[in-house]
Every structure is written in structure tokens, then in C-alpha cells.
Design a protein around this nucleic acid. Structure first.
Lengths: 194, 194
DNA sequence: AGTAAATGTTAAACTAGATTAACATCATTT
DNA sequence: AAATGATGTTAATCTAGTTTAACATTTACT
């Protein structure tokens, strides 16, 4: 159980004593998933939120036409879950599936409530994490309002170069909300342009 | 200064003692704005987040073509600010403008940090508020992925009937991310349908 | 009441992106 | 090395939503 990446990540937000680190690490779950495995399934209540130690996941939903829409990729040092389901303890809208073999450090809903009491600093930590998530989510809405598909692709490529290299192109199209054919067209246009 | 609506709202999340209520109310700012006034201006750092006691605001940005895009309306019992700017204390992407005369209870950034220390429960309160915001923001992304313009309008009408009645139609079109002409077409289609 | 400004409607021409379908390339397994 | 499945490309056709522009209606002000 390698909890170091999480502690390092947390140190950007709060300072934990050795005792607090020990309490925390005794309450965490460490799990390994294989490529293709589901971490969360649509309709289930999401009992855990996971911090990615290694690997890669996609969070997606199916629309009424059976089309898959990817809302998020998670790689090392990111979180993965259906955060809405986790927070509200209602059935998940999303599926979370591993695109690679993936190692997670998991917080369960029950334990997190207990941890908030035993380590009040965690309340602050998660407030800040959720704040970051909210800001990112709002910026994404703004992009979808104001950028063309090509501009959104360029933004993605620039912002997440590491993700683009690990993931098939048709999934990037799905994340951008366009068809794989149209993304292919955009890419060939971009090559012609320069 | 009528702080009751805020206290009532907060009681859905946490229980404050009389002392804590007094500390809180001594630190809050109560402000009245006229219709048309700006609460936040693009480029400024947003120093306050406001709880709407009465009135209505729109939060919007200008795209590179000078087009206005509304990202949110706020009415009684909602929050209004550029929350991204407020959290990160960086220049605001958005403008916030009053659509009616509006009364706000305002938390300043400096004071909120101080209040987190004096009333640790507030950390929990704001974590939960931000969680709700994140969930709503993610659901909006899902809708924009999976619903047609007509479906999104029907969702809006159903979800926020009170807002629809107070606000000109062209602003609702802007919120939905479509032109006012197309919304007009959708509405006449809906009338024909039944 | 009359006028100007703000808001809403209609319709024709246009475009970004979707759909369909056929084919090309790459990776994995036997 | 051949075969199968997964991924990526190209091009023709189609459609949801935009643009433009002219007009209609409502609201607010003198």
C-alpha cells in the first residue's frame, strides 16, 4: 500500500501531523483494477471516491440513443468517481471504467464522515478540492459555449498533452462532444494549415 | 439588515448557536443594488460572494465576437458571484448584473477565512454548498451533451418556472446557448404540437 | 395618448457538425 | 504470417441551429 502520492498531494493544501497521517492511512482502502474493469456502474450508489496512484480511467454516460459520452479522464494525482452520486448517495449517472491497469487509494463515504470529525482539517482539504472541481467544471461550460470544436480540441491538446497520448482518438472526440469522423477532419485540417 | 433568510437557509446544513449567529451577523455586509447595477465586473477580482435576499441577477461573459452568454441566473435563496474568481482571487471571467433591484448578504473573502477559524462549522457549510454547485454544474454539462435545444428548454421551463416568468426570453435563449430566433421557433413549435 | 425603446416573431439562406458507408491502418492473437 | 478486431480516414449527404433582415408587439416614458 503506497499512500505517499496522496500525502504529497494533500500537502499542497493542508499540513497533517504524523498521528493524523496514521489515522488517515488506517482508514483508506488500496485497490488495484485491471484494464476494462468498472469502478462505478450507472445506477449503483457510488460508495467510494478514488485518488489515482497509477493508471487511467474514463467517466462516461449513455444517452437515450445508446451513445457513450465521456465527461472526464483521470490519471495520476487526479480523482475518479461519480462525485455527484458519492456526495448525495443517490444512484450514479455515470460509469467509471479503467482504460489501463489502475491503482487507487479509496475514501469510503462512511469513513470520510468519520474522518471529518477526527481530523477537522480534512473538511478544509475537501472543500478546497471540491472548489477546484467546481471552477474547472464552470470553465468547461464556458468553453463549450464560446469555442468551436476545433478550438476546443486545440485547448484540450494544449492543456492535457499527457492524456492525449494515452487515449484513443475516438474517446477524445467523445470527450469533446463531437464525432470521431469530425475530429479526424479537424486534425487533417490542422495538418494542412501549417 | 435582514439576515433571517440566510440563517434559515444555513439551518438546512448546520446548526449555529446564538453566539455563532451573532459573530456571523457582525461580519456580514448587507447591500442593496438597483436594476442594471453591476455586482462583479469582468477583469476585477471578486472580493465578495452574495446570498440573494430579494431580486434577481444574471452572471454572463462576452465571447470573442462580443456576444453575451449567460451562465446563471440567481434569485432569492441562491448565491451570486464569480465563484471561480472569488475562490482563487484571480480576475473575474464573468460579469454579474442585477436584472431587478436586489438585496444581498455578502461574505468577503478575507472575512470568510477568518470565520472558518472562529466558526469551524462554516467550513462544513461551504463544503456542502460548493458540493451542490459542483453536482449542478456537472449535470448541466451532461444536459448540454445529451439534449437537443428543445429538450433543454423544456428542462429549464420545468426546473425553474419562477425564473422563466421574471426574465426576458432572449436572456433565456442566451442561457440555453441558442439564439433568440431559434428559441422563438421552438416555442411556436411547442404550441403547434399540443 | 403618443412616441421611442425594448422585446418577440417569421422566413429565407447558410454553416458547423452529424450521419452513413466504404475503406485503410495498426495491434494482438493464434 | 495470417487473421481478427480495434482504431482511424475520407467523402457525400443531411440537419439542427445560425444569420440576416424585415416586421410585430409590448413596455416605459413624456
Amino acid at each position: 500500500m503506497n499512500i505517499e502520492p496522496l500525502l504529497k498531494y494533500m500537502s499542497n493544501f493542508i499540513t497533517l501531523s504524523k498521528d493524523e497521517e496514521d489515522i488517515l492511512s488506517s482508514k483508506l482502502l488500496y485497490r488495484k483494477y485491471l484494464k476494462g474493469q468498472y469502478i462505478v456502474q450507472h445506477g449503483d450508489v457510488c460508495k467510494y471516491t478514488g485518488f489515482v496512484v497509477s493508471g487511467c480511467t474514463k467517466t462516461f454516460f449513455m444517452d437515450s440513443d445508446g451513445q457513450e459520452h465521456i465527461v472526464m479522464f483521470s490519471i495520476e494525482d487526479w480523482w475518479t468517481s461519480d462525485i455527484g452520486s458519492f456526495i448525495t448517495q443517490t444512484p450514479a449517472d455515470f460509469n467509471v471504467q479503467c482504460l489501463e491497469n489502475t491503482e487507487l487509494i479509496m475514501f469510503s463515504q462512511e469513513i470520510i464522515e468519520d474522518l471529518y470529525i477526527r481530523i477537522p482539517k480534512l473538511e478544509r482539504f475537501f472543500r478546497q478540492i471540491v472548489e477546484k472541481g467546481l471552477v474547472a467544471s464552470q470553465k468547461r461550460i464556458v468553453r463549450s459555449f464560446s469555442l468551436s470544436a476545433k478550438e476546443q480540441y486545440l485547448y484540450f491538446r494544449n492543456e492535457y498533452p499527457k492524456i492525449e497520448q494515452r487515449i484513443p482518438q475516438y474517446m477524445i472526440a467523445s470527450y469533446l462532444g463531437i464525432t470521431k469522423e469530425f475530429l479526424s477532419k479537424i486534425k487533417s485540417q490542422l495538418i494542412l494549415e501549417q
